[in-house]
Write a protein that binds this DNA or RNA. Structure first.
Lengths: 235, 235
DNA sequence: GAGTGGTCTAGACCACAGG
DNA sequence: CTGTGGTCTAGACCACTCT
């Protein structure tokens, strides 16, 4: 682990534990505390700022931002299992379909591959508190993910990809819209008369910038909440 | 303007103009081209990576990411006027209400102020292609924003705050949910039989970390689309 | 003026990719 | 092996805040 990451994690802990209440020590003090150069401290602080832990003020110091507790963050790239675990929510996943198919025109477009290329198609239903509220449709490039065991789909695909296959998941482009439910949604989800679904479509990339997954996640609207932290870009 | 920001902007231009197609020159070459140290180049590249323009690959170089065109990005902190201008969309804003009130319990909670403190209350309707599709409810802390002219509300509040008052807008915490329309929504928007609204609630902060604005932006679902770029956080 | 963060530099060493 | 990015350093100068 790099030095500035260790420092970052240690500072996060100290903020969480309220060891520092309103403000961090100065960069000069931190660089002495952690026996690191000021630039290294500043790398750690840049991370903290990016993640919304602190706000730096020129001439004053680094103010600690009170983070609101997050109920259902879709921000960032987090697997369903990781999210449920963080929130301490009881949830189960049932795999409706797992098969190897040749990409049709739409699927090929989603994964940036040629029509007819082999890919995995996966359909899963997420159940929270006994209600089926999320439908996940996944396509995975089989040139990158050769094997996809049923066990990984029921547990956590990302854990399998990162842990077993050693793939590094890096970034995603995602889009959120509100749409009418399809017959598929009505068949597989407990719609309870709701007349819309929230659809999150994501393209997920590896560290070498290869696109390996396309996901369409369809949520019953009452069970959807997205929380974000954003910084203003000037100029 | 700082050196690394100039370099960042110049590289963005070169990517947009397709002067560099798949990969950036190496950091060493860039540092010679721009007559800057490697660390300064790396600051510019860090910005590019953060904004989703490039993906750095150890030992190889910086790959250019094809950015999908954005239809309606709510990501980041962008004023309605800025967003419409970027997309080249015809839109008008009508101010339904602009008044100075004492905060009630709910409003005080939204703005982290005491009940009874003076604040601005603002209601605006956004019309796109002749349809009223967005309802914006704003509360602004009057201790920070003393005057709020009608002209600024019809044009762009952020332009007024940053340009006229010299306030620096820095970051926001936002939340997106899907809810049932209120009587207010039905009265002021062209709901066309849609049975849900998308609600974006934001707390917006200044560079000194003071909360100055709470916004509730209510969208007709067919006119809503959120596009995001996210990086995976490991550990 | 003293203390703070913001920027920039030149150089060093390491880890990874590819021929 | 060479070239690439990733990390870390020590020092310099500037701009801002507060007293």
């Amino acid at each position: 682990m790099q030095k500035y990451r260790k420092i970052y994690q240690d500072i996060v802990l100290k903020i969480m534990n309220r060891q520092w209440q309103h403000m961090l020590p100065s960069e000069h003090e931190l660089s002495q505390m952690y026996e690191a150069s000021r630039e290294t401290i500043r790398k750690a602080l840049a991370l903290l700022s990016q993640e919304g832990y602190i706000q730096k003020v020129h001439g004053k110091g680094s103010l600690i931002i009170e983070k609101q507790m997050l109920d259902f963050p879709v921000s960032g790239i987090v697997s369903f299992k990781e999210m449920m675990h963080k929130q301490g929510i009881e949830a189960t996943t049932s795999v409706e379909l797992l098969e190897q198919v040749q990409a049709d025109a739409y699927q090929a477009d989603c994964l940036d591959i040629s029509v007819g290329t082999s890919m995995w198609q996966l359909i899963r239903v997420r159940e929270i508190n006994g209600e089926k509220v999320i439908l996940d449709l996944d396509y995975l490039n089989q040139e990158i993910v050769e094997q996809l065991p049923m066990a990984a789909c029921q547990d956590s695909i990302y854990e399998y990809l990162e842990g077993q296959l050693g793939l590094g998941i890096s970034f995603a482009q995602k889009e959120i819209t509100v749409e009418n439910p399809t017959a598929h949604d009505i068949q597989l989800l407990d719609m309870e008369g709701f007349s819309n679904v929230v659809v999150i479509r994501s393209k997920v990339y590896l560290e070498d910038a290869r696109l390996f997954q396309f996901t369409e996640s369809r949520h019953r609207p009452d069970k959807f909440r997205f929380v974000d932290f954003a910084r203003r870009v000037h100029g």
